[in-house]
């Protein structure tokens, strides 16, 4: 019965949300688009930070690789941008495998600085026109809009449905993943790595897998971003972007899917709402970040402890192992 009510509530919320472009002006629709892209990014990072407990502050690297893959293959070889979605995920995933293999065993904060380093290296490589294909600081322009069956996604309203459909699919898939054997294993190793290892969970394997899946998804988000902006440059993939994604995950409530959506609304939407404060808008935003964290120390919508029929011990939350 509660289940049925949840379904009705969710469907109703979806219908309301889907009708928003009819009520909002283009600017707010575009703000929602931005929120949508960050929701996808946060969901992907959530898998790495929230579920596997890996302190990743360089997620923008995978986002960038996806975006550049899309831009290079689309402008250079004329491959339709939608057809490149898997390719973008693939390159980002391969890159993740390559870099994560030697570093995945590092302890929390050491992993953090390595991911920051990887993010910076990728950005510097892009600026320096690595392999002569990234266009240096100019970036790449003239990226095609996505089109499906002859319908071209152009206006912010079109992108609203494109982005949020993708976000919706992501939510469903990640929800299934969370409740799968894979998701349970991840949570186990986040809570207690040694115990997980002892119970036969191949921790290195699961961590790596989570890292790669997260990277693949960020790569696909990069594709969407590239097709939406039609121009990309290294300025869009700075350390600051990684920081934003990370803040969404923690603020929203690490490990919780609704938390990611709400976090994206707050982190991306608040600076827009604060435009009224003119030059002080980022100051207000910083203060708001501290305040929200203090009042909801577990994040705004923390992940619920999964209930099993056995009496459970009060699971202690800890960021990294």
């Amino acid at each position: 019965m509660t289940n049925q009510r949840t379904i009705i509530t969710i469907s109703l919320a979806n219908v309301v949300f889907a009708s928003l472009p009819f009520f909002l002006n283009t600017y707010w629709v575009d703000v929602l688009n931005s929120i949508g892209i960050y929701s996808i990014l946060a969901l992907s990072l959530n898998l790495i930070v929230g579920h596997a407990g890996l302190f990743n502050l360089g997620h923008a690297a995978f986002y960038a690789i996806g975006a550049y893959t899309a831009a290079i293959l689309n402008t250079g070889y004329g491959i339709p941008i939608l057809a490149l979605l898997p390719a973008c995920g693939f390159t980002a995933g391969v890159f993740a495998v390559l870099i994560a293999r030697p570093i995945i065993h590092l302890r929390g904060d050491y992993l953090c600085i390595v991911t920051i380093g990887v993010g910076e290296i990728v950005r510097i490589a892009l600026i320096n026109d690595v392999f002569g294909v990234t266009g240096g600081a100019n970036g790449i322009f003239g990226i095609a809009r996505p089109s499906l069956f002859g319908f071209s996604v152009r206006s912010p309203q079109h992108f609203f449905y494109y982005i949020w459909t993708f976000a919706g699919i992501t939510v469903c898939l990640f929800h299934l993943l969370e409740n799968s054997r894979f998701g349970r294993a991840l949570n186990y190793l986040r809570e207690d790595e040694v115990a997980a290892e002892g119970s036969g969970v191949d921790t290195a394997h699961y961590k790596l897998a989570a890292f790669v899946v997260g990277a693949v998804w960020a790569g696909m988000a990069g594709n969407i971003y590239a097709s939406k902006m039609t121009i990309i440059s290294p300025e869009s993939f700075t350390f600051w972007e990684s920081v934003l994604m990370f803040a969404i995950v923690i603020l929203g409530g690490s490990g919780s899917i609704p938390g990611m959506l709400l976090g994206a609304f707050l982190i991306v939407g608040l600076p827009e709402l604060f435009r009224e404060f003119a030059n002080a808008r980022m100051l207000v935003f910083g203060a708001a970040m501290i305040a929200m964290m203090i009042f909801r120390t577990q994040g705004i919508l923390p992940a619920k402890q999964r209930r099993y029929s056995l009496p459970e011990s009060s699971g202690e939350e800890s960021g990294t192992g």
């Binding site: 300025e235 869009s236 435009r275 030059n279």
Partner: peptide, 21 residues
């Protein structure tokens, strides 16, 4: 009517949408 583009492309595209409305 002034809008902040933050010196970064994504913020700028939002600023532009906002000005356009």
């Amino acid at each position: 009517v002034s809008e902040d583009d933050g010196g970064d492309p994504r913020t700028a595209s939002l600023a532009a949408q906002r000005l356009a409305t």
